[in-house]
């Protein structure tokens, strides 16, 4: 049995439907949900967490329907799109309040607060009122709150928004550790590098439907037709590449070429070698998911 399953789930707000016939299953590990603004990621999270009941279909988390069986929500951690902290309370009080909401016994509450404070490096902020925190600091506190109940399942809606690069990296390391410890992490992000680094698999969502799902490499194979490469060549390849219909832009000792298709890579390498220009290196530029995302945005083929 998967940790999370969604079977033919349709959901929305009022008259408008946002999710259509979603079928997904997640086991422990790191699962990235990728989609543009308004694609339905947040709604998918709300359905998974049990805030929004599905209009049709079945949602199951750890074997229970979270919108009906509210106790199972104690095993779910949720980071909403906004930090939603009590502005007048200090960071410690915000965590203390949430520990009480989670019904953690006081000794366990204290030790869990100490743990998440250490994990998220919040000790310097503990006595500060939440109102005085920067966006990134507030986001770290909100992540700490999501982790407070030591949940089995984590829904994190764009957790690195507002974090500085070092804090984002620390968080990624922390989450990777949790994924290795058999937790199920559902993670939405617009950061394609982050998605490529973390994801055991990526689910592509567009207009409330699952467009595709798979490992980063598999999605890349399926969607990434266009590609930017960096060539290291002994000599000037511009004439040869021009004959093949490509423009090579010099970049220090290398050349940047935009290929219309990944398959073209071997053709240009062969042409250069044949022309007596040894190719020392061919390196893909950008995140492997960048091309996937571009394909998705341009209405790429749904599967």
């Amino acid at each position: 049995m998967s940790t999370i399953t969604l079977e033919s789930v349709t959901a929305g707000y009022g008259q408008s439907l946002v999710l259509h016939e979603i079928n997904l299953a997640f086991d422990s590990g790191f699962h990235v949900i990728l989609g543009s603004n308004g694609a339905g990621k947040t709604t998918l999270f709300r359905v998974g967490v049990g805030i929004l009941p599905p209009r049709a279909g079945i949602v199951s988390v750890l074997g229970y329907e979270p919108h009906r069986d509210s106790e199972v929500k104690r095993l779910i951690g949720y980071l909403p799109h906004r930090p939603s902290l009590s502005a007048a309370l200090s960071v410690r009080d915000n965590l203390e309040f949430w520990g009480q909401v989670l019904r953690l016994p006081s000794a366990q509450r204290r030790s869990r607060i100490d743990q998440v404070v250490a994990d998220l490096e919040l000790s310097d902020l503990l006595s500060k009122p939440a109102a005085s925190l920067s966006r990134g600091q507030a986001q770290r506190v909100a992540i700490a709150r999501a982790l407070l109940g030591a949940p089995q399942v984590l829904f994190l809606d764009e957790p690195t928004t507002g974090l500085d690069p070092l804090a984002a990296r620390s968080l990624r390391e922390l989450l990777k550790g949790l994924a290795r410890a058999d937790k199920t992490i559902i993670y939405s992000t617009h950061n394609l590098y982050e998605a490529a680094e973390l994801a055991d698999d990526v689910t592509l969502i567009a207009a409330g439907r699952v467009v595709d799902r798979g490992s980063v490499e598999a999605l890349h194979q399926r969607h990434a037709r266009a590609q930017r490469v960096c060539l290291t060549v002994e000599g000037d390849p511009r004439t040869i590449l021009s004959d093949l219909g490509y423009e090579a832009v010099p970049d220090r000792e290398q050349w940047i070429v935009d290929l219309s298709d990944r398959a073209e890579r071997s053709r240009i390498v062969a042409a250069l070698v044949q022309a007596g220009l040894p190719v020392l290196e061919v390196r893909e530029l950008g995140s492997p998911l960048e091309a996937v995302y571009e394909d998705l945005e341009s209405g790429g083929q749904r599967v």
Binding site: K73, R74, A87
Partner: peptide, 14 residues
């Protein structure tokens, strides 16, 4: 207004 109700509804309460 601060999104706290969404958070409370995500916790183990009806």
């Amino acid at each position: 207004a601060r999104g706290g109700l969404e958070l409370l509804l995500s916790s183990a309460y009806r």
